[in-house]
């Protein structure tokens, strides 16, 4: 292993895709300076690149993807966490369709038998959707706890999901589904992380 110090930043990029420094740091749970230093080391090793463009940022190279898979598999085997992560993944996949239903309900709603975009003029409806997010989050918390117990790096998701929900409950409703730091986006990344960690192809 070529020094696993910067594994956190490498794996964060594997799960979130192209991103600016601040998002890499947030996903990895590192101070920005530390995240940047890791990214630079990774770039020197040819595992990540920085693309300067409107849709650019830091991203994984093919070599970086292979190296991340090697490290993640090694970590899973060394810690003996595979069964626990696989069991948590099963529970996650029970919650996943419900979360996607909720995200869809946030954008679309059936009025007079017609599916229409939710224009957010009905506060009671939005409050109902938010309430269901909170309810689901309580069940998600148990899955996150199982994951964190199996592999400490998963702890970060609980923090990020709770933070997104907090922001939404404080009135920043775009933090449910619409922003790049939204509950859905963090969930989507957790989904990707579980698939990557267990080596399961996305269906």
């Amino acid at each position: 292993m070529t020094g696993s110090d910067e594994s956190l930043a490498l794996h964060a990029l594997r799960c979130i895709g192209f991103a600016e420094l601040s998002r890499v740091a947030d996903a990895a749970g590192l101070p920005e300076a530390e995240a940047e230093s890791q990214l630079i080391d990774l770039a020197v090793a040819g595992l990540v690149t920085r693309t300067p463009s409107e849709f650019g940022g830091w991203g994984l190279t093919e070599a970086g993807r292979v190296e991340d898979a090697r490290r993640i598999t090694g970590e899973l085997d060394a810690t003996g966490a595979r069964d626990a992560v696989a069991a948590a993944y099963e529970k996650f996949m029970v919650l996943n369709p419900e979360l996607l239903d909720l995200c869809s309900a946030w954008h679309l709603r059936t009025v007079d038998g017609v599916v229409a975009s939710n224009d957010h003029s009905d506060r009671a409806y939005d409050a109902r959707v938010l309430e269901r997010f909170v309810d689901l989050d309580q069940r998600a918390e148990a899955v996150c706890a199982d994951l964190a117990a199996a592999l400490p790096r998963f702890r970060r998701y609980r923090t990020r999901l709770a933070a997104a929900l907090d922001r939404a409950q404080s009135g920043a409703l775009e933090e449910l589904v619409d922003s790049t730091t939204s509950y859905h986006i963090v969930w989507f990344q957790l989904h990707e992380d579980l698939l990557a960690t267990l080596g399961i192809p996305r269906q």
Binding site: R14, C15, I16, G17, F18, E54, F55, G56, G57, G59, L60, T180, I185, F188, Q189, E192, R202, Q203
Partner: peptide, 13 residues
Amino acid sequence: PYTSPLDMHGLAA
């Protein structure tokens, strides 16, 4: 075929 977070910059573009 499907999208993953690794496609987000492509979706944005």
